[in-house]
Design a protein around this nucleic acid. Sequence first.
DNA 1: TGACGATGGTTGCTAAAGAAACTAGTTTTC
DNA 2: GAAAACTAGTTTCTTTAGCAACCATCGTCA
Lengths: 180, 180
Amino acid sequence: MPAPSDPVDTVLELENFLPYQLNVCSSRVSEALSRIYGERYQIGVPEWRVLVTLGQFETMTAKAIGLHSHMHKTKVSRAVAMLERRKLIGRRANRADMREAFLSLTPAGREIYNDLAPSALEFARQLLDTIAPDDRAMFCRVMSKLNERADQIARNIAKEIGEDRAEDRINPVAKERFRG
Amino acid sequence: MPAPSDPVDTVLELENFLPYQLNVCSSRVSEALSRIYGERYQIGVPEWRVLVTLGQFETMTAKAIGLHSHMHKTKVSRAVAMLERRKLIGRRANRADMREAFLSLTPAGREIYNDLAPSALEFARQLLDTIAPDDRAMFCRVMSKLNERADQIARNIAKEIGEDRAEDRINPVAKERFRG
DNA sequence: TGACGATGGTTGCTAAAGAAACTAGTTTTC
DNA sequence: GAAAACTAGTTTCTTTAGCAACCATCGTCA
């Protein structure tokens, strides 16, 4: 019988099944994190990501934000719209290409970012402070490998069934579901 | 300047921020996985979890399934309802407690499970086959620690702001959002 | 130049997820 | 032994996510 923490088993046990473990871990962590900014600033994950991305890069188009923060363009669009309504970010037209616009934090937005970023870093510090630095680095490396591998496998399957390549999908899912 | 894979930074960079990395990794992995069963059986993650849990434990109540698979009771309820409509699981009343019912796979459900479980294990094998066994074990240990730590932090925050303890929440979120 | 395809971004529609309210049954308490 | 408190599970309602269709603009190629 495999050890309970052995990630490769011969019988399918949910609690030792990597995709499940990852999902649970991810949602527990982001749940904890969202308690820090959710209550305080009344924003959700997408808005948080937009704020942080703009805080990091000063000025960006919605497209670039989506690419960098791994979000679907509609998610970005809506998050941007709400942050704009709240006057936390502003937009400046790109005279060279009127389709897109340059987004950046307003002073009010920068203020929130300046408070929000340290709390987030502090949160990450607390999360990781019981984990040895070597293990942290290793953990990141494994995550990257998993990402790579997952994409590889997904591509293979897509090729097998000859799927149409929808270009602007972030989380492509099966299109039709059984609707009993 | 910190190395790009250093999980502890002094500036907030999304791509090196653990909760973000976890979220991306988790969704890419489950996206890839869902391609295996989604297309083939027309089910989603909740249904998959119910099937797998019942495959593992033979008979269970909805409550127990939710506990074991970390799902909100409404999610379980709906997944069960759809699997029942498709005659993949059946229910037997518990004469000793008529509130709950014992759920288990029908032969048809077991058949699907018998095909589905090996593919899932094979998927996990492919995911992990480039990762050294020691690293796999380490990865799992770190995930458990992160889970623990995340809950701890969340509890602390909840205590600080003196939150009401909603007992049947799996992913509690901020209650009120700004609706610009 | 001007049609045609591609691209950035928004909107409309549908599906999924969770909170809260509810139903039905069980346990506790006085 | 009945009212109150509690529990398993379902339903309703609201929010959120994503796909598809769309609009406006841009690049290309005849």
